[in-house]
Design a protein around this nucleic acid. Sequence first.
DNA 1: CTGAAAGCGCTAACAT
DNA 2: ATGTTAGCGCTTTCAG
Lengths: 355, 355
Amino acid sequence: MADTAPSSLVSGRPASARRRYGNRPTMKDVAARAGVGLKTVSRVVNGEPGVTPDTERRVQEAIEALGFRRNDSARVLRKGRTASIGLVLEDLADPFYGPLSRAVEEVARAHGALLINGSSAEDPEREQELALALCARRVDGLIVIPAGDDHRYLEPEIRAGVATVFVDRPAGRIDADTVLSDSFGGARDGVAHLIAHGHRRIGFVGDQPRIHTAVERLRGYRAAMADAGLPVADAWVSLGSTAPERVRAAVAGMVGGPEPVTALLAGNNRVTVTAVRVLAETREPVALVGFDDLDLADLLGITVIAQDAAALGRTAAERLFRRLDGAAGEPRRVTLPTRLIPRGTGETPPPGLRK
Amino acid sequence: MADTAPSSLVSGRPASARRRYGNRPTMKDVAARAGVGLKTVSRVVNGEPGVTPDTERRVQEAIEALGFRRNDSARVLRKGRTASIGLVLEDLADPFYGPLSRAVEEVARAHGALLINGSSAEDPEREQELALALCARRVDGLIVIPAGDDHRYLEPEIRAGVATVFVDRPAGRIDADTVLSDSFGGARDGVAHLIAHGHRRIGFVGDQPRIHTAVERLRGYRAAMADAGLPVADAWVSLGSTAPERVRAAVAGMVGGPEPVTALLAGNNRVTVTAVRVLAETREPVALVGFDDLDLADLLGITVIAQDAAALGRTAAERLFRRLDGAAGEPRRVTLPTRLIPRGTGETPPPGLRK
DNA sequence: CTGAAAGCGCTAACAT
DNA sequence: ATGTTAGCGCTTTCAG
């Protein structure tokens, strides 16, 4: 066959020479089979006008017969838009981020875009690696839940036109659109709630201090205590890893120390879960308010400060697509409110006030 | 400037003519700035050998100065592999699928691939639309948690070389690699557990009958009852939507009917959650075993048949990449075991046997 | 209404 | 060690 002929002598590439994409037919193949020009196939595939019904039918038949499917990689290269966005989050397995991601996906879908997810595992390097890999794939936009606190590495990308929105935590050292929950206000409200129920010695167990929300929630905790004129003992505050062992030790220290707390604010869902386990074993009941709602928390009667993870994702995605649609203007910061849901653990009075 | 000159007269495209990808520099631009050939830039970017340290440095400088990042779309077009895989699941917000997806992501990452997620919302059409969109993007492989029961639409894709693995539920009308949990065995064990604790009238509330796992779990339920020589009243079995209202009605009917059940097998995590809520309000305690583990289920003392969602995802992804690495052979079906975790609700004896 | 030609940005194959 | 050329499969442009 023509296999050995120099390619410059044959206009078309012989079918047997196909290798890529596991032998997939191309528009050229469809055109040849339908006896039409390449562009006509393109028109049919993309539903563009200017094709007679008869021609269209012949092309459709060839498409069916060959099992053709448009190669979007090539399309993307030509068009310059991938109709996909990237989402860098901490851990897709975390019940907080699942709904957030799903909400982003729904907005993307409404805009005809696909979503590429990546988990940073709270590792700044991995966040950067992921975000840049997504940029190399030329996602149209990027939504980032930061693990690190320096996002200058994204500057060239943003300048090059990658719309970028930060969620849940603010960007570090760059100015960018951001959507946050009101961590400060939520924590303050939670602690005020405990104070209103008679507590004076209240502890706070939070995430690592390099995480923005952890610091904000601590601020909220301190603000509520200060507002009530209450002192805060050093032993009542513990920031660090949310690994169960660490949290367990922190909680145990607070309830078992010389100045034992009678109530606790748990800094996020993982902390809450462990705190509930530990407190189930204490003799005196300890009041608890957790940041982030949990499945089944109602059945367990856990009082929480709920964030709306889906709203966070939706808001961020909508802002992203508005930018992609050409919205100009300064980066904006949106803060979504939290909601205190009393369910029992937060309304337990301190021992002294008990009936 | 040369802007108006016909492009055939100028070797390079003037910088002002760039439009795509928001004005991004290309390798050509980098080459020009570094005063080297295009291929040399490619070598540096890809870490290929055969570049003097000095040349490399000059190229790196040009890359930095221009903020160049390789366009993977073009690379993909040329190489024929996208280094990405697709995962079509039901709902990323479901606590069962989050960990599954995360496990797939980890395996993908180990193979240098990105993961594109899509939620079918249990809609067969949407599943197909998503799967085919992923194929059009030329994902190297596809992992599908089926919503529909006819996957012949994937035949051309599979023939064209898209490695495909089904998880959690089997493929419909095509033969393909599949990874499942042992729904039948798990349900049978769960019901046997209840029978061993003295129950005779046991109900089953499951998902819609078009969902494979629902049917399998029902089979397991019936097998255990039959093994014990127990009859099954029609009123004790209810398949359908897992929406809270539907489940609530089904459970209420079973515990309040003329032949009230003393124990219940909940067909999946959503059913379990609602069942727990309903049963919390009944006068007589009703025993419960739930399919799928839940966060905090230990604190609530809910006995469950646990599936390992992460193992499901990991196993499927590993099979996928083995296929991508060239593994041949017939499609294989793997069934992962389930594990019964007694925590209380499944060990409650029926009223007659109570102390 | 239809098609030929150019080229998106990159890599493979082949010079030099 | 470095550069040149062709072409991945599609869309854009422009000519019939």
